[in-house]
């Protein structure tokens, strides 16, 4: 705003106010890497951009809101600690979502206990129109079907359907053979289809 008056005289300034003040992910990562006072702030901006998608990765895998939010926070804390190792040529969004999926996997494997499942049916549920209620209930059925899958199956579904990785990329990401990727994925789909169509 302080630049409003001179901006009327200057194309470069207009360019900067329009384009450069919305820094790219790359700019933010470079600033976050510098390790100065501005770093945390730049990284915070990245968090603002990706927190919802990262949280949703965690929520699809864990189906427990509090736990998913804690883990999403953990994903960003860890990413910030090792931001200097991030390859600047890669895209931040897909990378951070894969990190999230892996962290959830580690978390579930370390727990090996079934957590109390979350119902997104909350207080305002009754006030929704009937159509919206149906959509919501269907989403809930899909989430429950997902979370009923074995951990490995859940992970391949997440990476294939929501993060759109190829078979090969999933094999690398989870460090399993290509044949396992396929068998997990295809069996997971079979189970999901049975569960979802049985409840129709």
């Amino acid at each position: 705003m302080t630049y409003f008056f001179p901006a009327t005289f200057s194309l470069p300034l207009l360019y900067y106010t329009l384009v450069m003040t919305t820094p790219t992910d790359r700019d933010l990562i470079l600033r976050a890497c510098r390790g100065d006072a501005d770093s945390a702030e730049a990284f915070g901006e990245l968090v603002t951009r990706y927190q919802t998608s990262v949280f949703n990765v965690c929520y699809r895998i864990l189906h427990e809101r509090g736990e998913a939010e804690d883990l999403a926070q953990e994903v960003f804390i860890r990413a910030y600690d090792r931001i200097h190792t991030f390859d600047i040529e890669r895209e931040f969004g897909p990378w951070i979502r894969r990190v999230a999926a892996n962290l959830c996997l580690n978390h579930l494997e370390s727990q090996k206990v079934t957590t109390e499942l979350d119902d997104e049916r909350d207080a305002d549920h009754a006030q929704l129109p009937e159509a919206a209620q149906e959509v919501r209930e269907r989403s809930e059925q899909i989430r429950k079907a997902l979370v009923s899958l074995p951990i490995n199956y859940r992970l391949v579904i997440e990476l294939r359907h929501y993060q759109e990785l190829t078979y090969d990329e999933i094999a690398v990401e989870l460090n399993i053979p290509l044949s396992d990727v396929k068998s997990h994925l295809f069996r997971a789909r079979k189970v999901l289809a049975e569960k979802l169509h049985a409840s129709d």
Partner: peptide, 29 residues
């Protein structure tokens, strides 16, 4: 099944995960 999986909506967070990193809400130009 593919379509059903695609239809799953994204949910909103109940807290701001960026707050831990940024004391101020936005970056100054």
């Amino acid at each position: 099944l593919f379509a059903e999986l695609d239809s799953l909506p994204e949910l909103e967070l109940t807290r701001d995960l960026a707050a831990r990193f940024t004391p101020r809400p936005s970056l100054p130009a």
